[in-house]
Design a protein around this nucleic acid. Structure first.
Lengths: 355, 355
DNA sequence: AAGCTTGCCGAAACCGGTTTCGGAAATCAG
DNA sequence: CTGATTTCCGAAACCGGTTTCGGCAAGCTT
């Protein structure tokens, strides 16, 4: 049949099959094919179907660059690596990126990665990417309380999604894991083990998660009927060293805690060290709960009880949300949260101190 | 002046400045401008200069997609994440990606990241990327001895560069760190401390680095006048667990070694554990040398002596090589190696066993 | 049956570049 | 001074799509 022959010659040629090939195979013009594929209302149902079927058969895939030159959209998601906070990002990055690209690929999108070493450079990077239309929208990891990226993109009216929440939600979409729930549950878990003096080591307060986790901790304490002790609470610790320092200063308090909740696993490992140096046995003299689920925690002695977050899934979710945002869905529908999963590994135990 | 006015109106409009804007500002046609910028010989020196100056002044930047539709090249480098070997990649990935994107950005290129979960999917991912012209070439991390990616890209005649070497170098460019030199130096260092029975735990033999590092170890042993003891040598350990198992079986040998060289830091940390369980003090009863320079090594007790590699710099180098390859330089010029840097942190010591 | 919509598609312009082709002006040879 | 080359640039086609515009034919009025 003539049709099959046309299909064959087009695909056998080795080169890409273009919209003109599809049009020719159907004796239509490429403009009709284009409108049919894009669902324009002035193409009859039957023609639309014929075109779609043929496009499918010929494995036609529009060339995104060719579309981009007219439409301005490339079908690509932008991600800007920030090199400054490498400590915070390192473990999480690989899984997260994998999730992003998985989510993007699933819908025919591509992931474009750029990097910036400082904040000034960061804005510049976004602007270049935008000007050259390298990305239709952006994924912003680590939402900050006062986020320059949000300001820029909001003003430029460019689609973006945050990993983390924004307190001024205008124009913002996000995916986040409810760390506040985890912190609350951590406190309740410890309270259930008889702990009454519970310390808290929070993460970087420039990030919005820190405020939330702190609130979660405070909520938990209130629910457990415990009073907050400012001398047992610290902010801005994200590395193991900072965790060790914070832990040390808490453990050296006049009336030290029997348990410490850490907003970040790395700092929990620092607390391990501070405890060891003081001859305290984790899980017995001192209970510790972390958050993140980093691999090192599972290998610590004793293994760290923590809230595991699925970074891969977060990436997939964010890619999906961003694509929906790019396609024009209102921001309000595009705010999702999920929960971290508590893994009780043995760094917590019954309160052994009698008061 | 008319010229300034034209420049102003073009750039003030807010929209991108196109090649036509430049042409208009100079009262030339866009074809002339295009050829001038691309160095065609049929444009006079003076015109070429005028055009380049004006393009500079107007901050004209060709739209890569627009170019791509005719030239087929997008000015973008492809990188496919393999999810299978996440353990091996995780720590290294963030720095490496940062380097890649830094190197790409420096030359006006962009980095496109995709992912694949298994080998079948991997090939498919490359093909899709190629078919849709998402990348002009690829960076292949972790060169394998028998590398399916190399086969595919060689056959498709697509530019690519390897992180790691290839024993059949046809059509291959690479950047690599000479792990064999590090392994040799590790042995010589240990021999200098009086060690005569030295164990070796190699990494994954599917990767080309393993063969090289093994040869380096053997070279070092030969240079030190020591004989190889197969019962003290193991292959295919990349995780801490595998390192622990390998270390345990070596330490349980009839005549155990006083030092162990590990091709991968993770496994060295596993050896730490195996040693602890046997009551051996690292740095005293057993010397250990690693390779990679992972952060956990610096925090181990005692800190792990290791060969630090600069993954960021490797990324920058590879991006640069790939761009040169894309621009047509012959592969032979594009093979570079560099050295790892030994950091002596205290996990090695004088041989204390008297024989 | 004439006049008006409406549905549906082709023709053509356009997006922002690259590349081929041809021809005018300037240079050279004789 | 004429004829043949060069030199250098403009005109136009092209890449693979999208989008505007206009017109034909069928269906509806009245």
């Amino acid at each position: 049949m003539a049709k099959s022959a046309a299909v064959l010659s087009a695909s056998a040629k080795g080169a890409r099959v273009t919209i003109s090939d599809v049009a020719e195979a159907l004796s239509l013009t490429k403009s009709t094919v284009s409108r049919a594929l894009n669902g324009y209302p002035d193409i009859s149902q039957s023609t639309q179907l014929r075109v779609k079927r043929m496009a499918e058969r010929m494995a036609y895939q529009p060339l995104s660059h060719a579309q981009a030159i007219k439409t301005g959209r490339t079908r690509s998601l932008g991600f800007v690596l920030q090199l400054a906070d490498h400590d915070a990002q390192r473990p999480f990055l690989a899984e997260f990126l994998a999730g992003l690209s998985e989510g993007a690929t699933a819908q025919g999108y591509t992931l474009t990665v750029a990097s910036a070493d400082n904040e000034e450079h960061l804005i510049e990077t976004f602007q270049t990417l935008l000007r050259d239309r390298k990305a239709d929208g952006f994924i912003l990891p680590r939402a900050m309380v006062d986020d320059p990226r949000v300001k820029l993109l909001r003003k430029a009216d460019v689609p973006f999604v945050l990993f983390g929440r924004q307190f001024d939600p205008e124009g913002c979409c996000w995916f986040d894991i409810r760390g506040e729930d985890a912190m609350r549950d951590a406190v309740l878990h410890l309270a259930g083990l008889g702990h009454r003096r519970i310390g808290f080591i929070n993460g970087g307060t420039i990030y919005s998660y820190a405020k939330l986790r702190r609130e979660g901790f405070e909520d938990g304490m209130a629910q457990a009927g415990l009073t907050l002790e400012p001398e047992l609470m610290r902010e801005n610790a994200v590395t193991m060293e900072e965790g060790e320092r914070a832990g040390a200063s808490i453990l050296d308090a006049s009336d030290p805690p029997t348990a410490i909740v850490c907003a970040v696993d790395q700092t929990a490992l620092g607390v391990y060290r501070a405890a060891h140096l003081r001859g305290l046995v984790i899980g017995h003299d001192l209970s510790v709960v972390g958050y993140d689920g980093i691999k090192e925690g599972a290998h610590a002695q004793p293994p760290l009880s923590t809230f595991v977050v699925d970074n891969r899934a977060s990436g997939v979710a964010l890619a999906g949300l961003l694509i929906r945002r790019i396609r024009g869905e209102p921001t309000v529908q595009l705010r999702k949260t999920s929960l971290a999963h508590f893994v009780n590994r043995g760094s917590t135990g019954q309160n052994t101190r009698h008061e």
